[in-house]
């Protein structure tokens, strides 16, 4: 009951105030990022290079288990606006990609189609608090189209110095209207040290979240 109430509060905030975001989709100039995201719906890998602090370009792979859908795409992320304050930072990104996808689900017998997706991501953080929102619309020619959105709130139980192990406790709420499990709530813990970021969680459908990001 308490979890449901928390979900309603957070999700309500998401709908009325899209000032949320997920992670840093753009690195520093010359920086490479490798990330793998795994949850109840899909496994994904994203490798990108940032020629500037405002743009990243890379390869995105996704496998959606229930949809039996595989996607390969060229993804471009663009930092549209950053709000740098003394004690905090906010960001607004647009993330888009084009590529190909193929599905084995039902009548789709390894059918291939052109794919495209786009969405926004916004976040705000200081050294103890984090909040974010992102969404994405995906269209795969002749096979599928779907919308997804997610939000996070996070809190750091202690404030580490540069180079320390940083720990965040987070709550992620996902909404995918067409999915069997339309709403997913995932409490998770984030560990961040040097170039490594690791996230572990279990959602309300008892499925594991495992994310790992490496930047260099």
């Amino acid at each position: 009951m308490r979890l449901l109430l928390l979900f309603q509060v957070v999700f309500g905030l998401v709908l009325v105030n899209p000032s949320f975001g997920i992670a840093r989709p753009v690195s520093y100039p010359g920086g490479w990022t490798l990330m793998t995201m795994n949850d109840g719906d899909k496994n994904s890998v994203h490798a990108h290079y940032s020629p500037s602090a405002k743009t990243s370009i890379g390869y995105k792979f996704e496998y959606w288990r229930d949809k039996e859908l595989t996607l390969h795409a060229l993804q471009i992320n663009r930092l549209m606006k950053r709000w740098n304050r003394t004690e905090s930072q906010g960001n607004f990104y647009i993330k888009s990609g084009v590529g190909v996808a193929y599905s084995d689900l039902g009548v789709f017998d390894n059918e291939t189609g052109a794919s495209a997706f786009t969405g926004i991501a916004v976040d705000w953080e200081d050294r103890r608090r984090f909040i974010s929102y992102e969404n994405r619309f995906t269209d795969i020619d002749g096979i599928d189209d779907f919308f997804q959105q997610s939000a996070r709130i996070g809190w750091a139980p202690y404030q580490g110095d540069y180079g320390d192990l940083h720990t965040w406790l987070m709550l992620q709420i996902e909404h995918m209207p067409e999915a069997n499990e339309e709403h997913t709530v995932t409490p998770l813990v984030r560990f961040f040290k040097d170039v490594h970021l690791l996230e572990l969680g279990v959602n309300n459908h008892n499925k594991i979240l495992f994310n790992y990001i490496f930047r260099y």
């Binding site: 840093r24 920086g31 950053r82 930072q89 050294r127 940083h166």
Partner: peptide, 10 residues
């Protein structure tokens, strides 16, 4: 905007 290790590394 200097709020995290990632910013410091950048």
């Amino acid at each position: 905007g200097l709020v995290c290790d990632f910013c410091a590394r950048a």
